[in-house]
Nucleic acid binder design. Structure first.
Lengths: 123, 123
DNA sequence: ATTATTGTATTAAGTACTTAGTACAATAAT
DNA sequence: ATTATTGTACTAAGTACTTAATACAATAAT
């Protein structure tokens, strides 16, 4: 469980992103119980207040729910998770293409760079 | 000249990124004079101190140089600009692929999504 | 020579983020 | 019944970022 947090952005915001990703990718399975706020905070080397902030904000998205004293749980609604995953992927892609465009790279140039990078990665 | 700045990240950092992009894409042409700190600050609706911070940090990258009282200028070194552009593109791409991977999409899946999205865009 | 513009520096204030430390109510575990 | 664990709330402190308001030295423009 890697939590590499950078200092150029609010930590709580990065935590939200990463937890969301862990849910969407199945690392945090549907219906399963999350580690406690204190545990997660220690894992991520972060103050419990900060983790608490991230988790409570994440609940607004509906991917989590809280049982007051037994802990937090991932939603069992697989369809909701699937939708969140799809939404995350599309956001990333369009954001990425937008940046490439602003750099002045047309589509073929972008594709060519990607493919060469993937070729490099195979070696 | 659009400067849409978000509040979830330090402004100076976003300014650096966007100015770098404007240089790499040719919006700020090689050898040309930049608007003054005060002008740029007003354009971006930002405090002059913040713009100054971004610009002075940008100079460390070598894309800008300062003539103490006549203003700031874009480097004439086209090769350096080209390299910066390439570096920016590669950073964006690997960052993007990393996120896709964390979402559970491997590189070939990601590549296929992109190509189909680019095909869609042509229509 | 005078004026305007340039980058730069400084101080003060406000805000957001993070941490440390503590505490409380509810309930699961014993 | 008692204890431990849960989420939650609160205060105080430190740091980083941003803005406002000036000010200064160098030099381009007049």
């Amino acid at each position: 469980m890697s939590w590499d947090l950078k200092s150029d952005r609010p930590i709580y915001s990065q935590l939200i992103e990463q937890i969301e990703i862990k849910i969407c990718s199945g690392i945090f399975a549907p219906g399963s119980k999350l580690p406690s706020v204190r545990e997660l905070a220690q894992e991520a080397a972060v103050n419990p207040n900060t983790m608490q902030k991230a988790l409570s904000m994440l609940e607004e998205h509906g991917l989590l729910y809280t049982n007051r004293t037994s802990g937090r749980f991932i939603t069992e609604d697989i369809k909701m998770i699937q939708q969140a995953k799809q939404k995350l992927a599309q956001e990333q892609i369009s954001e990425f293409l937008e940046k490439m465009k602003s750099l002045g790279l047309n589509k073929t140039e972008t594709l060519s760079i990607i493919t060469t990078m993937l070729e490099e990665a195979k070696k």
